[in-house]
Nucleic acid binder design. Structure first.
Lengths: 210, 210
DNA sequence: TTAATTTTAGACCAAATGTACTAAAAAATT
DNA sequence: AATTTTTTAGTACATTTGGTCTAAAATTAA
């Protein structure tokens, strides 16, 4: 049987995702969970504590994702696969990205963690790109630090596609995730070698490359 | 002498930018303006009315910007120039982009306006790109609708760079605007022809292209 | 100058929120 | 079985908020 402590997180996540983090009060979460608000406070002193717990869940899932890398794909399909997995995870916790600024402003510790994780992500992109260059899928830089700028660009994209989707898209989550993963992958195309472009052609992306 | 009605907008804008739209109450705006909250309500019935008024200011400024296009620049400098102008304007009203989702959710009319303006922006990008292709600065598409995807990407970027900057950057506004304009311009580089790349070399971008 | 209109402040209200305190109920430990 | 610890609900409080109503003050028009 599920403990109330876990049920609180479940209900908080749903409320945050659907109503917006700032519109949800401790009392609402308690009510949705079917417990008294004083009981909720006993488990989590503030809303920030709940967010921190939810963020830890994200990190746990992310670790698992990084563990099982499927390399029986071509370059683009591998990229697509891991992108979709990552985007899908993030979408489950989408309130976090949507209200990121408010959440980090009121929680300095969490902000530090987030910034560190961000640096890690950048390094992972850097490594992936270097590997892809060595394997001949991506071209060399055309000017110094070109790929550093590119990484900054894709970082902004991955931080913000969810917020964009809440404004522009009305489709079901799976469609949305596919759409934005697809759009993300396409950012790599202009950096591809001929071999890399072949990989696009052979990939399972939604719309075909001629 | 400035009318209270204008002073309200001034103070609301400052509060929204500094404290976050959702953290600011009508009473706070009234207090900052030095008037009673009932007086404020007399001028603007709700916070939404204030946002709408501020958004109209944005649109007015944007119109003016579009009017004076400087074409005594090379391709990239012209792009850079107009980007910086636009980014700078938006930064003055940054609360709007940061809290976009909440603002549009609670104001359906404004949402429709915003979506229409968004379509207009896309068309403007489309035209600019087509012109640049004709003039030989940008290459032809490598696959169907490549530039449509690109436009979607730069749209997400221009919708979200401000939010990113509030999380990652601590510099002064001018630095921030320059940095993100620069990063934006660089998204075009991989689509450039040789002639286009020359234009980058000759440009006044912060860091030089070798 | 007088009358009409616009602008302003103040008092009041009901609802929601975070927080603190108390005590009972449930579960775990001895 | 007795006791200690954990979990739970209830109550009460001060604060903030959006909103309404009333009447005075300031401005404008006749």
């Amino acid at each position: 049987m599920k403990k109330n402590k876990d049920l609180i997180l479940e209900n908080a996540l749903n409320l945050f995702n659907n109503e917006g983090y700032l519109n949800v009060s401790i009392r609402q979460i308690a009510s949705a969970t079917g417990i008294s608000h004083s009981n909720l406070i006993y488990h989590y002193k503030t809303k920030q504590d709940i967010v921190t717990a939810l963020h830890n869940q994200i990190l746990e899932f992310a670790k698992k994702l990084n563990a099982d890398t499927q390399d029986n794909f071509n370059f683009i399909d591998a990229l697509y696969h891991s992108t979709q997995k990552g985007f899908s995870l993030l979408y489950n916790y989408r309130f976090f990205m949507i209200d990121l600024k408010y959440i980090l402003t009121e929680n300095e510790t969490l902000k530090q963690v987030y910034l560190e994780v961000g640096e890690l992500r950048k390094e992972m992109y850097k490594n992936a790109i270097n590997t892809a260059i060595e394997q001949g899928f991506l071209r060399e830089e055309l000017y110094p630090q070109e790929y550093d700028y590119f990484i900054d660009q894709i970082k902004i994209y991955s931080d913000s596609w969810i917020t964009s989707s809440t404004i522009y898209d009305t489709e079901i989550p799976q469609k949305i995730i596919t759409k934005y993963s697809d759009l993300f992958i396409r950012m790599f195309y202009p950096y591809c070698t001929q071999k890399g472009r072949e990989s696009f052609k052979d990939s399972k992306l939604t719309k075909s490359f001629l």
